[in-house]
Design a protein around this nucleic acid. Structure first.
Length: 376
RNA sequence: GGGAGAUUUCCCGAGCGGCCAAAGGGGGCAGACUGUAAAUCUGUUGCUUUCAGCUUCGAUGGUUCGAAUCCAUCAUCUCCCA
């Protein structure tokens, strides 16, 4: 349940109540695709990282270890040892990212497993059943994340199919939630808006799905190659058509600047692989800009990654040490780097919330958007 | 003491007369990464005044139009026989 606390312009400060606890928004979801955040981060670490929600993936967990196993293990929360909310992505992104290994049909998508080549079918019903077995807090509708650029006609056909799939998702979810064998009978369902960068299609699709009265609405299919400007314009175009009493989730976004700009345009929820993946590659976020800890200039640097940061990594270790660990491919290097970046992202959201609470968000945005994108 | 083999650019290692500033790894340097097929991928890695020139393949000297590649001597290392 979405409870608006405060607004500044289009930016919204709210709470989202779930059976696994309340999420303070705007919030960033920490991505643990295969029931783990890459880089050796455990659920107990996430508590120190101010993580509110973890995101896992339907397609990946279905392949391994399988949703049956996870259901028998008591659902994802027990499986991972994480009590707070979990959002599962539907597999719709894999329609995009694994495009070479799949065929789209009206009934759903035929994948060839990226692990062993096995043929896998996933349609709206399958995705909902898998997510019900995983027993996440929030299930995402099964959609097609359209590649960019995409022809207009293709996009039009695709969003209409995504709408039909959404209706099937909703129906299946209602069935599953009514089933006493379901671990989480209160599983929430979010719909996903598509339409590439065509504003008319985005709006049309948003209108089509808005009246389905879902638990939340996501904007998908962005940050897939279009410019930041196009992304912002797309959000601005659809935002007026998103139900204002429902949580809004911008999928897969983004850089700290992207997040601030999207909050400014009315988005509540984010997720992105960037803080964890980039951390593993030595690309670290600081309050003064972005550093690449692999650079030779940090070899003998005794300073923490960011002296304005009080994350476990910055409280204990120097740049020179982390650079060494990453260079030596010691797993501790990745772990420390990921801890820092996730803490940074979760702190960024905390600061955004704080600024909204204090009506200083516009100022926060002005002061930070540029600096956080700068490479130093 | 006698015999066989080796010595290549930061490292390992290919090359066996011109297409060699020299394959391929590794390492170094730098870049990319946005609902994670990503512990991945890309570029670069002798010097310079870079549509070219110069200096490199243990050392020196030779053969040749032309040598990392052939010959001689020396140096170092490895193995085998005494």
């Amino acid at each position: 349940m979405y409870k608006l606390i405060k607004k500044q312009g289009n930016a919204r400060r709210a709470e989202f109540q779930t059976v696994h606890g309340t999420i303070q928004t705007p919030a960033f979801m920490n991505v643990g695709t295969s029931a783990a955040i890459k880089g050796g981060i455990s659920s107990y670490d996430l508590k120190d990282l101010k993580c509110q929600v973890e995101l896992c993936n339907t397609y990946h967990l279905h392949l391994r270890p399988s949703d049956d196993v996870i259901k028998d293990m008591g659902g994802l929360h027990k499986f991972m040892g994480w009590e707070k909310p979990i959002l599962t992505d539907s597999g719709g992104f894999q329609v995009f990212s694994l495009s070479k290994l799949r065929t789209i049909k009206e009934e759903g998508v035929y994948f060839q497993s990226h692990i062993d080549g096995k043929k896998i079918f996933m349609g709206p019903e399958e995705s909902m059943r898998i997510q019900s077995n995983l027993a996440s807090t929030i299930a995402m509708a099964f959609d097609e994340c359209i590649e960019n650029p995409a022809p207009y006609d293709y996009t039009k056909n695709s969003i209409d199919r995504t709408t039909r799939w959404l209706v099937r998702c909703k129906k299946e979810m209602e069935k599953l939630n009514a089933n006493p064998n379901s671990i989480n009978q209160n599983q929430l369902l979010f719909g996903i808006n598509q339409g590439s960068t065509y504003k008319d299609l985005r709006i049309q699709h948003m209108k089509d799905i808005a009246n389905l009265d879902l638990d939340g609405y996501a904007i998908g299919g962005l940050a897939v190659g279009e410019s930041a400007r196009e992304m912002y314009e797309t959000i601005e175009a659809v935002e007026p058509y998103m139900p204002s009493d429902k949580i809004r989730y911008l999928m897969g976004v983004g850089t700290p600047a992207n997040i601030i700009e999207a909050v400014y345009r009315g988005v509540d929820l984010f997720d992105c692989v960037m803080p964890s993946r980039n951390a593993r590659h030595g690309h670290l976020f600081t309050w003064s800009g972005i550093i690449n800890i692999n650079n030779a200039k940090y070899e003998r640097d005794l300073e923490p990654i960011d002296n304005q940061c009080d994350c476990p990594t910055c409280r204990n270790h120097s740049r020179g040490y982390i650079r060494h660990l990453l260079k030596a491919k010691e797993m501790l290097g990745m772990r420390l780097a990921v801890i820092h970046n996730l803490y940074f992202y979760n702190t960024l959201m905390e600061k955004i919330r704080y600024s909204l609470d204090n009506d200083t968000f516009d100022q926060f945005r002005e002061e930070n958007v540029e600096i956080l994108s700068k490479r130093i």
